[in-house]
Design a protein around this nucleic acid. Sequence first.
DNA 1: TACAATGTACTAACCGGTTCGTTTACATGA
DNA 2: TCATGTAAACGAACCGGTTAGTACATTGTA
Lengths: 226, 226
Amino acid sequence: MTKKIKRMGKASTPTRTQDPEGTRQDILEVASKEFALNGLSGARIDEIAARTKSSKRMIYYYFGDKEGLYLKALENAYRLVREGEAKLDTEGMEPMEALKRLVEFTFDHHHQHEEFIRMVMIENIHHGQYLERSKAIRDLNVTAIDHIGRIYKRGIASGVFRKGLDPIDLHWQVSALCFFNVSNRATFSRIFGRDIGATEAQTRLRRNTVDMVLRFVAKTSALPRD
Amino acid sequence: MTKKIKRMGKASTPTRTQDPEGTRQDILEVASKEFALNGLSGARIDEIAARTKSSKRMIYYYFGDKEGLYLKALENAYRLVREGEAKLDTEGMEPMEALKRLVEFTFDHHHQHEEFIRMVMIENIHHGQYLERSKAIRDLNVTAIDHIGRIYKRGIASGVFRKGLDPIDLHWQVSALCFFNVSNRATFSRIFGRDIGATEAQTRLRRNTVDMVLRFVAKTSALPRD
DNA sequence: TACAATGTACTAACCGGTTCGTTTACATGA
DNA sequence: TCATGTAAACGAACCGGTTAGTACATTGTA
């Protein structure tokens, strides 16, 4: 039995009931969710197929095998967030403000893309072995360093940032705080009996995260007295 | 065929070839490694059984089912690290030094217990649903808050720490940095082409982590000029 | 003897992957 | 305009290895 209605139309524009790119995309989106939810070994090809507008046959037709599908889902996740990150422009701001915005943006961005965070967690469980195979992903993330690096350089020039820090280290620290906020929310919330994901808690954690980064980078002289 | 040699001995002390507690412990240790390595769905009961001095039959005899075994492995992981953490005593130190030690200790401790970190990652992938079932685990971690809370209070009293911070938030921040250092090492290293796990990198990250926490908590007046 | 601990062999369901056949799109040609 | 060849796109049913879990018999211990 056919379980779904294909897009119809015999109009003049070449509409077609066969839609390779659409099918491919549909599978990829469903698979991304399934892998993010259940992990590589936990995800079920049959389940993915069932949620698809297509079939299991097509998964293997387009993606070869389960690992091939997972890899594409992983690449897709990185590509999506990268596209979002590119939107932030801090070039006009003064360094301290720019860094603040960058941290806030990263914090919010991670918060809004739990699926991506989960894919990265899962990939780390697999020791990054699939990411290793994907040149596409490695290229994407280098620009993040560029961004924070430029802000830092400007802050040094204007005398508000401490010298001797490394942009990658900075990126690491910002990532750590923003990533952990999403990745460990479940266990942290349950252990300490407070819902870390609730808006009030998030507001406070966000402020703390910004504070923490700024206080780390800023010269003592550029800090408020307290 | 019996695949292993049982502890022998017909001595006067009641040695026995049947060793329930030993078998149980053996299974748990093997299972912990397998789950930490492959996740809940990725781990194989047959594989665990094979690595055991015992058999699959015994796994079900003692742990009921796969999830029961996983839960015990999870509890075991938490219990082990908790025991380690209890060893740190900062009561005699002055607050700033005590906090420094606590962060260093946490950083090192997480670094040395990758298996635990992986179990927590895996549990978070499962939305903490197994941890939820375990009262045992929740009880363990509250003492961590106690520790950092006491240090913080002393720091406030002696005037070196800023007021208005929350011990749980502090714990969150320390955890985030120390946890991320282990959990995301694979993807981070691969993306930025530097081995984050190498000793030089770790030394720098450790120092940065300590700095970051101290600068966050300390009053500006208690900070070095720069 | 009674009960806890253990070994062996088995099963039923699951699940990744495939076989085989069908439909659709579209170019070609008359 | 329509018949036709063909390759891509698709569906359904199937397969065989894997895997969690069990039945049953046996041994050790108190």
